[in-house]
Simulated assay, not measured.
Amino acid sequence: MSAINDNTMANIVITGTSSGIGFETALHLAVAGHQIVALARSADGLARLAEAATLRNAGACIHPLPFDMVHGNYTDELLPFVQQQLGRVDILINNAGTLINKPFMETTATDFSRMMATNLIGPATMIQQLLPLIPAGGHIVNIGSMGGFQGSSKFPGLSAYSASKGALHTLTECLAAELQDQAIKINCLALGSAQTEMLAKAFPHYKSPVSASAMGEYIAQFALTGHRFFNGKVLPVAVTTP
C-alpha cells in the first residue's frame, strides 16, 4: 500500500529550498498542509521560506535546517533532525544543484568535480542516508535537466553541468531496479527553462515563459502523485530548453 494517498498529509524532505524552484516547491507543499523538512545552505533563504509559508497558511509546517548535502554531517545533524520532526519520509525531493557556465577548454577538473559532487554525489548520499526512513510506497524525485537529457539541444559552456545531470538521470534508472523489492518508487524530472537565478547564470539574456512558481507547483504535484504512474523514468518537463 502506498505511503502517500489523497486522504493524508505527506512527510517530505526537500533539498535546495532557499530560492528558485526548490523554494516554490516547498512553499506549495507546505501551504497545502504537508509536513516539510526544508534543507539549504542559506539560513536566510530558509527563514524567508518559513515566513512566506506562514503568511499563506498560518498552520503551515516547515522545519528548516541549514545543511550542506555534500559536506554536511548526516549522522549527527540531518538524521536526528528528520527523525525528530517527521519520523518517516514519504517523499524525498532532490532539488539542490549548481551550475558552472564555462567553455569546455576553460573547465577544470575541479569544476567537473564540483558539478559531480553537488549534482550527483549529493543526491546519491541523501538517498542512501534517508532510505531507512522511507516506507514502502514512498517516492523519491530527482530534479534533472534537459541539458542532460539524451537527444536534447545542448549549449556551449554547460558541458560539466549537463554531464553531471545526465549521470543523475542514469542513477535514477538504476535505483528503480534496486529499490523494487522495497516498493519505493524513484523518478527524475528533466527540467527545461524556468525563470530562476540559475537560468540567468546559464543564459543571461534569456527570459523563460515559465515562472519558478509554476514549475514548483508542477513538481509538488508530481511528487505527490507521479509514483502512481511512473517508476525509474526520466521525464522531460520543458516548454523551452531554452
Score class of each variant (00 low, 15 high):
residue 2 S to C: 10
residue 3 A to G: 14
residue 4 I to P: 07
residue 5 N to Q: 09
residue 14 I to H: 03
residue 17 T to H: 05
residue 18 S to R: 09
residue 30 A to Q: 00
residue 37 V to L: 04
residue 38 A to S: 07
residue 40 A to N: 04
residue 41 R to H: 02
residue 42 S to L: 00
residue 42 S to Y: 04
residue 44 D to N: 13
residue 49 L to G: 01
residue 51 E to V: 04
residue 56 R to T: 03
residue 63 H to T: 00
residue 66 P to S: 07
residue 78 L to K: 00
residue 84 Q to C: 10
residue 89 V to A: 10
residue 93 I to Y: 10
residue 96 A to L: 11
residue 102 K to L: 14
residue 103 P to E: 14
residue 106 E to I: 08
residue 108 T to D: 05
residue 108 T to E: 04
residue 109 A to M: 14
residue 112 F to S: 11
residue 113 S to C: 05
residue 117 A to G: 04
residue 125 T to I: 11
residue 126 M to D: 04
residue 128 Q to D: 14
residue 132 P to T: 09
residue 136 A to P: 12
residue 137 G to V: 11
residue 140 I to K: 06
residue 140 I to S: 04
residue 142 N to C: 07
residue 145 S to Y: 03
residue 150 Q to V: 12
residue 155 F to Q: 04
residue 156 P to C: 05
residue 156 P to N: 09
residue 163 A to Q: 05
residue 164 S to N: 11
residue 172 T to V: 11
residue 172 T to G: 08
residue 175 L to D: 06
residue 179 L to R: 01
residue 183 A to W: 10
residue 186 I to M: 13
residue 190 A to T: 03
residue 190 A to Q: 05
residue 191 L to F: 11
residue 194 A to D: 01
residue 196 T to D: 09
residue 196 T to M: 10
residue 199 L to A: 08
residue 199 L to P: 00
residue 200 A to C: 05
residue 205 H to K: 14
residue 206 Y to W: 11
residue 209 P to D: 10
residue 214 A to W: 06
residue 216 G to Q: 02
residue 219 I to C: 10
residue 225 T to V: 09
residue 225 T to N: 15
residue 227 H to N: 10
residue 234 V to S: 02
residue 234 V to N: 02
